[in-house]
């Protein structure tokens, strides 16, 4: 391993191509931490945004007027404002309104740190899209199917859980995948509130080393690989879930 590191150090000295995260231990650890933070943030947001989507779509079919209005308001608010500004708003405005807790360095810190706020904010953002995606899928399920289930005495929740959702899920998978891929890319915004994810760490490195070009190329490739893995996994899943002749 040391040989590889040394090779990149030589590469810098010889050609000026500076990849400090490969030979400098401090920068390397930063980059690895960044990668893990990105992956962790993505997974947390994926999970919660799907939960929000499923629950939201169900609540939208509710017979209470105000429940539906509330969900609609949430969707419209989050869909029609920039996620970056949402993130700032959550972190700086809402974050300071919440009660504080004693922390281990003797100060008062907010309950949620920047990672938590990024996770909350991005989950709600992607969740708003997911609600609409699931809703469109539910609407695509033929009425006769739902009626047949009703005739068989299924309860409302049962119909949603056992009939509508599984069918809708297959219909919406492409749209859902698209949104989830977007979500992973949107995690780069967490950079703005100093969540140490990949873009943030890369920025720190290029500020210290003045090597924007190299870091930029590396970042593009890194995200290409990361998202590529997600996309191919999703596609495989899409194929596995496919019902022949349906959708």
């Amino acid at each position: 391993m040391e040989m590889v590191y040394e090779w990149f150090r030589t590469l810098y000295q010889e050609t000026g191509i500076n990849l400090p995260f490969l030979y400098d231990e401090y920068d390397r650890n930063r980059m690895i931490d960044g990668l893990f933070t990105t992956v962790k943030l993505s997974l947390v947001c994926l999970f919660f945004s799907i939960i929000i989507g499923v629950i939201g779509a169900w609540l939208q079919g509710s017979s209470f007027k105000w429940t539906r209005r509330f969900v609609s308001g949430y969707i419209q608010l989050f869909r029609n404002t920039p996620p970056l500004v949402q993130l700032y708003f959550f972190y700086f405005a809402i974050g300071t309104l919440l009660p504080r807790v004693e922390n281990d360095w003797g100060g008062q810190s907010p309950i949620f740190g920047s990672f938590a706020w990024a996770a909350i904010s991005l989950s709600f953002f992607a969740g708003a899209f997911n609600v609409e995606i699931f809703r469109s899928g539910i609407e695509a399920v033929p009425k006769s199917t739902v009626e047949a289930a009703e005739a068989l005495g299924f309860s409302k929740l049962q119909i949603y859980r056992d009939i509508t959702l599984p069918l809708a899920f297959r219909v919406v998978l492409p749209a859902l995948n698209n949104n989830l891929v977007n979500l992973v890319k949107t995690t780069t915004l967490a950079y703005a509130i100093a969540v140490p994810e990949m873009l943030y760490e890369a920025n720190q490195i290029w500020s210290d080393n003045v090597n924007v070009t190299e870091m930029m190329v590396f970042l593009l490739l890194a995200y290409f690989v990361l998202v590529g893995i997600l996309v191919s996994g999703m596609n495989r899943w899409e194929r596995a879930m496919k019902i022949p002749g349906y959708g």
């Binding site: 890319k185 949107t186 780069t188 915004l189 873009l199 070009t213 930029m216 593009l220 290409f224 996309v231």
Partner: peptide, 19 residues
């Protein structure tokens, strides 16, 4: 299509800006 779809917007923007 896949390449530009998979790259985060922010990273592409940085790319265009600095390079």
């Amino acid at each position: 299509t896949q390449f530009f779809r998979n790259a985060p917007w922010l990273v592409l923007l940085f790319f265009a800006m600095f390079l």
